[in-house]
Design a binder for these strands. Structure first.
Lengths: 124, 124
DNA sequence: GCTTGACCTGGAGCGCACTCCAGGTTGGAG
DNA sequence: CTCCAACCTGGAGTGCGCTCCAGGTCAAGC
């Protein structure tokens, strides 16, 4: 049960201090420990959550949906199915996103090739 | 030189009418034709630009950068190199984005597999 | 000629996800 | 004991990219 100072948690998760506080304020990150003086102490478990949030944010999940996921997890084991489904649906959206990104990347590369082969055309 | 009504341009480009007007207002789309009565008429050339903007937006280019690109194109052939470089740098960022997305997608799939194999654990 | 749906303008408003701030507290190093 | 960097709070502000609105105009079909 190692404890991490806010700055350390920020460093490890890649979120800013303000973002960590914000995530706690909106209830995404719950029950973060405190010192007697009121300063936050993040556990390995908190860090695990942050790594998950990093993954979900990087793949474009809205914060509201992450809140829902976290809420379900807090409610206990019986929500495991719903949580899995939520992640599965998200994964499908990510697949679509990846396909679109690949398609548009190909367009972009084609456009660049056009510049390389026919330099100087002013049209779009 | 076919002309398209705003609603048709919106349908073909996937941008909303408001977005088309917005793009014109900020100078991203310039010199859009008008009827004698003041209603917009989009040309195939305009549509070509919109398709490019769609590509750049879908790959995450900020609007300010698209404006810069469009501005350069308007300045003439001598900016072709700069335009190509701008697109190239963007393409590199897109590649990084695709790698990150793939990595985080893999994490997500791993997480889902975990739910499928060990249903019911409450931790993150 | 009249109707009606598509279009026009300038400007305000929105949703998201932070980010910053002022003014005060904490706690480890020396 | 003192110092100062790191931390705390509530709340305001920011940046982006649209999106919506009111109040009016246009133009194609009947």
């Amino acid at each position: 049960m190692t404890g991490y100072a806010p700055s350390e948690a920020a460093r490890r998760s890649g979120f800013s201090l303000d973002t960590l506080r914000y995530y706690e304020k909106i209830g995404l990150l719950a029950d973060v420990g405190r010192t007697s003086g009121g300063q936050r102490v993040f556990t390995d478990d908190d860090l695990g959550w942050l790594v998950l949030f990093r993954c979900l944010r990087d793949t474009g999940m809205p914060i509201a949906q992450m809140c829902r996921y976290a809420q379900l997890a807090r409610e206990g084991e019986h929500t495991a199915d719903e949580r899995r489904e939520l992640l599965e649906r998200h994964a499908v959206r990510v697949e679509e996103q990846m396909l679109l990104l690949q398609r548009q990347y190909d367009h972009l590369r084609e456009k660049i090739r056009f510049y390389e082969q026919l330099p100087g055309s002013g049209s779009a």
